[in-house]
Nucleic acid binder design. Structure first.
Lengths: 159, 159
DNA sequence: GCTTGATATGTTATGCTGTAACAGAGTACA
DNA sequence: TGTACTCTGTTACAGCATAACATATCAAGC
């Protein structure tokens, strides 16, 4: 049981399902979900929270993969590039995508107290942004929207 | 002449004006714009671009201030906390606020080619976000919106 | 005056995050 | 068989950030 969004659930199912989607997507697009990349994705799916690259690396090492930073960074870069994993700029960390397969603009809600991260829809916000950017002549390719605050559980504790 | 937004201008005036606003704001709020903090703000205003903490530190050292990282980080933290400077998460860098004194949700347009950073209005996007966050029970305190893409000049060059 | 507390500056030392550059293994294909 | 490409692994290093401690300044209260 780990938090996703801010609700608890058993995510045994979503791990299997996300891996399935990733494999299908990769074979469709002719890209390779190699053992190292797949294992990296599994690690993030199992923990189901934002993890630093070095933390991921420890798990990779324990699984018999390389133990040097580039091993983790390359796998993470691949997963981010293809949308299976998101990078949380605010935390210099990575988290498995909560909506694999769907084309979406992600937005993250980061609790400053417990560091839990939830993924929320950002389509309206991202659209609003693209319009004003276009007015300035800027061509948007990627948008990162990250909100910091208190998650429901921590709001309650604080009160 | 340095780029602000994506247009060139002489910003001698805006340096003086921003410092003025900062001093007024600080004395109104009973907080101290000490020499080190003021100098840090000046450095960012003069360069008028996103700068890393260590780059700022070099300038501070040249001005006779401390030469160790905490000196720069403390001043930058102060300036960020009070809204005179923004932190660009994507670049691990800092930039002087383009609209000092105005209460605003900032949004940054970062050119992936020339690294120029422009500040755009993010009010609509931030508002849209707060609403969907509230639906999930999350209390937003701070929002970072950063778009990566190509600035007008680099779009033209690429074409 | 003198103490106390709050604030700010400076240092040393260290830890976390990320990448450049090179070597080798595996595969696809002409 | 050789060549090109991709992936994995390494060493070495660069860049970003903070903890912990020492010192200085200044205002409030005894």
């Amino acid at each position: 049981m780990s938090p996703i969004g801010f609700e608890k659930h058993d995510h045994t199912h979503c791990i299997a399902s996300a891996l399935q989607v990733a494999e299908t997507t990769c074979s469709e697009q002719g890209i390779q979900l190699t053992p190292a990349r797949r294992r990296t994705f599994e690690i993030l799916l199992q923990e189901h929270r934002a993890m630093g690259a070095y933390e991921v690396l420890e798990h990779l090492r324990a699984s018999g993969h390389g133990s040097q930073p580039p091993v983790a960074y390359r796998a993470l870069d691949f997963l981010v590039k293809h949308g299976f994993v998101h990078r949380i700029e605010r935390l210099n960390a990575f988290i498995a995508c909560a909506h694999p397969g769907e084309r979406h603009a992600p937005c993250f809600l980061i609790c400053r107290n417990c560091e839990t991260v939830a993924e929320a829809p950002a389509r309206p916000a991202a659209d609003a942004l693209s319009v004003s950017a276009a007015d300035m002549g800027f061509k948007v390719e990627r948008v990162a929207i990250e909100a910091e605050g208190l998650c429901p559980a921590c709001v309650e504790t604080a009160a």
